[in-house]
Amino acid sequence: MIEIRWHGRGGQGAVTSAELLALAAISEGKFAQAFPSFGPERRGAPVLVFNRVSPNSPIRARVSVAHPDIVIVLDPGLLYITDVTSGLKEDGILVLNTPKSLVEIRSELSGPWRLAVVNATSIAREMIGVPIVNTTMLGALARATRIVELDSLTEPILERFGARARGNVDACRKAYEETETGEPAGIVPKRPKIFEGEELPTWQELLPGCVLTKPGSARQYRTGDWRSERPVWDHQRCIKCGICYLFCPEGCVKQTKEGYFEADLYYCKGCGICARECWTEAIKMVEE
């Protein structure tokens, strides 16, 4: 049995990719499973999704995948905020969406697993018109692991995407052609735990009824890590009305001494609401 863990962000379609993979495998007569592990569901928040695929026996395990054979990362930014290789088996494979080359990535990440890279964001932009890479990464996965035939993915994608299916099928094919794979490298470097907020209280430490006596218990959640675009203010156009400040769902827009506004990038998740609400169009969202 092959176990797969997908790392994506809310809204990137990781759940859909895992589902399509399972459907493709099942259509080949294999046994397969796909299920998500959600936190608080929000666009941009890191999400995990799991697959299991077995050529010949039913799958009974109904539990998160802790020691995957394959890890797929939909969002390049996730590499820097979470340990995507956690538990990845020695002979496993890491499939990354990244604009970087295999050599560049090797200098950042090395371990006793194989690597496969593809610039899925640019493929998706070109073939589908939006930077949603879930179907694109399915092509990369099929190429790097041969877990399903490329053709088996077509039918589920066509069924799922209706009018937009053609672009998704093409993106999947293009990624299949462009994916580069590399052999295992040396020793796994100990990655620092960058993900904060992992120290959770035990039952003895919780106050009765889980009362929280201090505000800001979510202060350490660096929602800024979710961002793929950031707001940039144009002071020429800004009339200091404060609408952006009022509408920011993170409450992270602050007023400067001069009366202009800016985002605290530790928390700004790049949702673009400020830019949409600003009626003088003083805010532009630019790619990170």
């Binding site: 608080p40 959770l200 209280p201 039952w203 889980c210 929280l212 218990s217």
Partner: peptide, 16 residues
């Protein structure tokens, strides 16, 4: 001010 009945993801819920 205190917060009561906040969100509890599985690791907190189980402890609670």
């Amino acid at each position: 001010p205190v917060t009561m009945g906040a969100f509890g993801p599985p690791p907190i819920y189980t402890e609670a």
